[in-house]
Design a binder for these strands. Structure first.
Lengths: 233, 233
DNA sequence: GGGTTTGGTGTAAAAAAAACAATAAGACTG
DNA sequence: CAGTCTTATTGTTTTTTTTACACCAAACCC
């Protein structure tokens, strides 16, 4: 038994399912493992939790090291702790998902070194460890969350069109494009919540009639929530 | 201490919020700590996870040692891992909640030794560690779950009256008795799901008109779910 | 200026939820 | 056994929410 192995009793890590929305598709940011075990395989970004680090802090650190982003949406989902989930010892992992605006994503030294790439959810292959299961559970959580909390906006630019918002929902919920949700009903519903404000700006650079841009108004949302409102789509 | 070593100076435990329903009230099973830290304080039952034990298995073990029950409803909720949550070292804990029928609860050696007692949710005092927070989060989870999955039945005897079922919901959701839910609408809704079957039996030993007894039909429920049905109250 | 593409809008029917109160059945009392 | 007490049981109406559905408008491109 190697020296490291002899110390290796149990540990905990965080793994982060980083979602993005680009090209009308829901994506997940994966890294290619450079070391054993599972060398060369795609995996969720994660790391062992430092002895003096809170779990949320560890998840934020993993996210920032890879994307350069701080203060983005992050939620703990579940802990995976099957005895044999890690080939080298007992490591349980606390799974998080985060939602980022792809346009904000900057290549960091870490992401470069770990060859981070966006993968369409629908075309993720076999991942290292139990990461397929983790991804699956996190996606289910996102699908529920997006329907009863205003988290979808975290995936869009600050200013967006209603069509983009609808496509986001169709993509996250895995509905057929432009058939899953009725355009008129969707707009009616989202606008009737009064949490979107029209910008004085139009979409630019498109080869057709440009759409109005909207923004999510968190203050109004918070106020409505305090009054008993609950977001629901 | 080497860096590698320090990663493994940590442990993980499970804590179990065991809910019961008795006397029209939602209860939680607590134990009184017999050793430091927090000696004498009420706490959630829990234990360190064995090196070769899955997390769910550990939660089942804690539950069985205390109540003698196996195969009851158990769900992982969240992991609590603040650096200083445990005064003696870095211990993160995976929180579970379980739902049991109070009438099935038998005093075990462990429950006797740990002076386990049912506490009304509304009158739980200050608990050891971060257990108040854990209880709170688990209760919130139960409140959501009971509304979109048929888990309420886990808290009732196999045969129950519709009034008991309604009181269970009012208690879990913390609604005023007989004012939170309209009796007629409640019965209409639950019966229209077709997942309850009438027993050929009536309530006994009550000093008034006895009510019909019903049972939850899980097979029917599973079939409906497969056909796209979703439970909602 | 005609073609192409997406943006934007309202109404009617159906379904679901909410509001609401009187009678029935059994147990107990005297 | 008649009367009282307590909880059980049952439907209808109104309101709200959800669904279904189709045409004209605006900008760009050629």
């Amino acid at each position: 038994m190697s020296e490291v192995e002899s110390f290796f009793k149990s540990a905990f890590s965080v793994d982060n399912v980083i979602f993005g929305f680009d090209g009308g598709d829901l994506k997940v940011l994966l890294i290619q493992r450079g070391a054993a075990p599972f060398r060369g395989k795609w995996a969720l970004p994660g790391d062992l939790v430092y002895p003096n680090e809170d779990l949320d802090t560890a998840a934020e650190r993993v996210l920032e090291q890879l994307t350069g982003l701080r203060g983005v949406y992050l939620e703990q989902v579940r802990t995976f702790g099957a005895v044999n989930r890690h080939p080298l010892g007992r490591v349980i992992t606390i799974a998080y998902f985060s939602l980022i605006k792809v346009s904000d994503f900057a290549l960091t030294p870490a992401s470069f070194a770990q060859s981070a790439h966006w993968h369409s959810i629908s075309s993720v292959g076999e991942l290292a460890f139990d990461h397929n299961e983790i991804l699956d559970i996190c996606l289910q959580r996102l699908q529920r969350k997006v329907r009863n909390a205003p988290v979808g906006f975290e995936l869009l630019p600050q200013k967006f069109t209603l069509t983009e918002l609808q496509q986001l929902y169709e993509s996250v919920l895995n509905l057929p494009k432009n058939k899953g949700l009725d355009k008129r009903n969707f707009r009616k519903k989202i606008l009737s919540m009064n949490v979107l404000v029209e910008c004085d700006e139009m979409q630019e650079g498109v080869a057709h009639r440009p759409a109005k841009l909207y923004q999510f108004d968190r203050e109004r949302y918070d106020q409505f929530v305090a009054e008993g409102f609950s977001f629901d789509i």
